[in-house]
Amino acid sequence: MNVTDVFSDNELMLRVRDGDNVRLGMLFERHHKKLFNFFLHTAGKRQVAEDLVQEVFVRMLKYKHTYRGESGFGPWMYRMARNVRSDQFRKRGNAPFDSANVETVELADERPAPAELLETDQSIGLLRTALAQLPIEKRELLIMARFELLKQDEIASLLDCSVATVKVRIHRAIKELSRIYHQITCEVRA
């Protein structure tokens, strides 16, 4: 028996569903930072990202009765997160997310001027810029896979496709990101 079998996210959420709302606090502690970074990369500003995290947890309580736990807590939470995000875009009248909406600047603001950047800092900045230019489906896929927000089979369940398809899509996304990254790097060095 593993500790995760006993105190798993799934177990906690089932209790929340059955009326033990306080346990949502444990789920918040475990997941709010990851959700925040997920939104930061796929919805832009810090303030927006925080609002969206809050909204996800509000909805978890509101729709807790819909939780069945069959495909696990992670996919359920990120499905909710994606809905929250698209509702937000609709409210703001934005077209589905594209690179023009990404606030890479906000992140970059806190960093030293380009000339002072070390090589690695610079490539992190360029990678961020490249990531922001990727279509949102690919960007979120990469974030989910690379930051280990979800396992491959959970991503498959979230996207309603097979694990093999998930792998192919991630591979394509890395390829496209590499291409954009290369392009930007060449422009910067030119």
Binding site: H32, K33, A49, E50, Q54, I124, R146, Y181
Partner: peptide, 21 residues
């Protein structure tokens, strides 16, 4: 690229988020 992605720093939300939650 894949290695670079892992090196992207994880950002911290403000403490206000916790208070609001």
């Amino acid at each position: 690229t894949w290695t670079g992605l892992a090196d992207l720093p994880q950002e911290e939300p403000s403490s206000e988020l916790k208070a609001r939650f």
